[in-house]
Simulated assay, not measured.
Amino acid sequence: MKLSTLFITLLLIGVSFSQPDVSNSYLGVGDTGVSYFPSYLNLQMHIRCYSNVTAANQNGPIALFDSGLPFFSTAWVPIIPSVLANMPSWNISKACFVDRYGYGWSNSSTYPITTQEYVVRLRGSLQVAGLTGKYILVGWSWGSIFIQTYSLTYPKEVVGILSIDGTDSKWGLIPSNQQNVITLSDAVKGYINMNNMGTLEPLARSGMVGSYFGWLPDDWSILDTLNVH
């Protein structure tokens, strides 16, 4: 197996975390988010959504956010308030934040899932959850690979894409990137091993691993001290 293939499959299997109930909120008191847990082809995906509370744009597109490596939906917590404030002017009906398989509150896959299969499963999960319509796809770093693939696979469903520090879909195949492939693969495997040994959660809760890895802090004031970006 090529290093790039190993890297990609590691990312799509992801890291399985033991999490508190996500309904406790991302934003603290007054959080209006709703978590969906659609099951599609024997895997459950977690999608956290916030609705436009104004009367306008109720039938507008859904903004769908996919995070960078190795983060998941909680990586977007610092920008969610701004997204909520701008939803009316952006003409969107919902803003939804996705946990890829093995990340956050989504199931882990027991076998490697390619990018192409992931977007098929993402689309199926959105349909099961009733989150259908047109999409504006937002991908940060590694997440941009998935929004590129989704837009190419289902172009009639996508009205816009936004890539933030985007990764090219062929990044892992470029020879000069192979050392980065090895380093990042080792980092992901290290987090998997730490989680299996039960040592990752205490580090996250102490602030040594950022809350965007998925553990929401017991004391919300810690978010002010963490390097969340």
Rank of each mutant, 00 (worst) to 15 (best):
S82A: 14
D66T: 08
I80D: 08
A55W: 05
W90H: 11
S25D: 10
P70S: 02
V98L: 13
S39M: 15
P112D: 14
S106A: 02
A63K: 06
Y101V: 00
G28K: 08
Y40E: 02
G68F: 07
F65N: 06
M87Y: 10
D66S: 06
A85C: 06
S67P: 03
V53A: 12
N86A: 05
Y36T: 09
A63R: 07
Y40V: 07
P112E: 13
T74V: 00
V22S: 03
S82C: 04
A85P: 02
V98I: 15
W105V: 04
M87W: 00
I80Q: 11
P61T: 05
G30D: 12
L41I: 14
T54S: 12
L69V: 10
S39Q: 12
F71W: 01
N52G: 02
R100N: 08
N59P: 07
Y103V: 00
S108D: 03
A56L: 15
V98E: 10
Y26H: 02
S89C: 11
Y26I: 14
F97S: 09
N107C: 12
V29M: 10
N24G: 10
S89L: 11
W90S: 15
G30Q: 11
V29H: 08
L64I: 02
I62A: 05
I62L: 10
L64F: 07
L84S: 06
G68P: 13
T74P: 00
G28H: 07
L27C: 05
P61S: 04
S93Y: 06
L41E: 10
F97T: 06
V98C: 11
Q44R: 15
S73M: 03
I47Q: 00
D99K: 01
L64K: 00
D31A: 01
L64Q: 10
N86K: 08
Q58A: 04
S89H: 05
S51K: 14
V77E: 06
N59R: 07
T32R: 00
S108R: 12
G30V: 06
S23A: 15
Y40I: 06
C96L: 11
F71E: 00
V53E: 14
F65L: 05
Y36W: 09
S67G: 14
A95R: 06
A75Y: 11
G33W: 09
I80T: 13
P38M: 09
R100L: 05
A95S: 13
F72T: 02
T110V: 11
C96E: 15
